[in-house]
Nucleic acid binder design. Sequence first.
DNA 1: TAGCTATGTGTACGATTGTACTTATGATCG
DNA 2: CGATCATAAGTACAATCGTACACATAGCTA
Lengths: 179, 179
Amino acid sequence: MAERRHDPQRRDRIIDSALAVIAGNGVAGTTHRKVAQHADVPLGSMTYHFTDMDELLLEAFTRYADRIFQRYSERVLAAHSIDDLIGAVADLVHRDLVQSPEDLVLSLELYTLAARQPEFRRITHRWMRNSRSALERFVDSETAFDLDALIEGLFIHTSLDQTARPRADTERAVRRLLT
Amino acid sequence: MAERRHDPQRRDRIIDSALAVIAGNGVAGTTHRKVAQHADVPLGSMTYHFTDMDELLLEAFTRYADRIFQRYSERVLAAHSIDDLIGAVADLVHRDLVQSPEDLVLSLELYTLAARQPEFRRITHRWMRNSRSALERFVDSETAFDLDALIEGLFIHTSLDQTARPRADTERAVRRLLT
DNA sequence: TAGCTATGTGTACGATTGTACTTATGATCG
DNA sequence: CGATCATAAGTACAATCGTACACATAGCTA
């Protein structure tokens, strides 16, 4: 038998590896074996730390949503005026999101799961609620919903479209919505 | 051997069955056998009519995108004024899209594939281009991009959120964006 | 320190899958 | 009307998967 390792953060590493494998292969192409290999862990560890594939996916996407929201709220809460907010949104759409295509894949994979399974919808629920309440420091709750939706749509369409969308266009659109 | 059937539209039926199975089980849970069963067709027919699982998915989502765009453009092109357009968009978000949760699942599954595979991105490309050019009957192309993105975001967030979003809010948001 | 428990490791197994392949048959057209 | 070929049907097979399980060992606690 190979050398046994003391590895206290193994569970954490498996979760991060799961996100990496999902980003590369999609949920459909994610297997215990691929995640185990990426985490440099024997197959047996998978069933020890996670009873289910679903449990692994659930924890992975929970971590992902928290991570993305943190970046989101950092940008948004750093603003001190509506003009700042418009710039922050443009940063989100044109800098953060586009720079890492991984995030597009992972977000869409999560939405796809959420559309069919209530457990995952709880993750997106919390995510959306958090995002909106960050925006509500600047606008009323109805407008926060609209703005969050616009950011979502711009993110997806800008990422999928691939043709460089001018940042000024995004700023103009956000400004209009906030009027 | 069972009775042989003359079945000229079998290929078509398989494609529609694929969409039904995807809506119910996701792309990840879609197998040749499930699609064959739904289409009431022997397993052998799958590899005869489609060389690949990918070919089947590609044809299925191509059909789906065309179908959705047709409904979309019917709504949009029936409008004769900006006010009409605002109502048409509200219809899209609050009537068409929410009424069939299937469409949410299928759209997200398609986006998910498009995020990782260029073949599927060609489908979403064409879809978005078509949608925008319908909108360009009423607004300039930059605004068409924004509006299409807003519709997308509202569709996803309204569907996933589940809390009844007032139609008036959507109309107000669209009106702001078109100012 | 003794022993117990949490953690790590290797492997086996039944189920399911995509796909290929053989054979059969009916529609079509010269 | 007969031959040909596109289509239909059934089955086989290797690969891969999730999961279970038996066994080993290190760290903690009493």
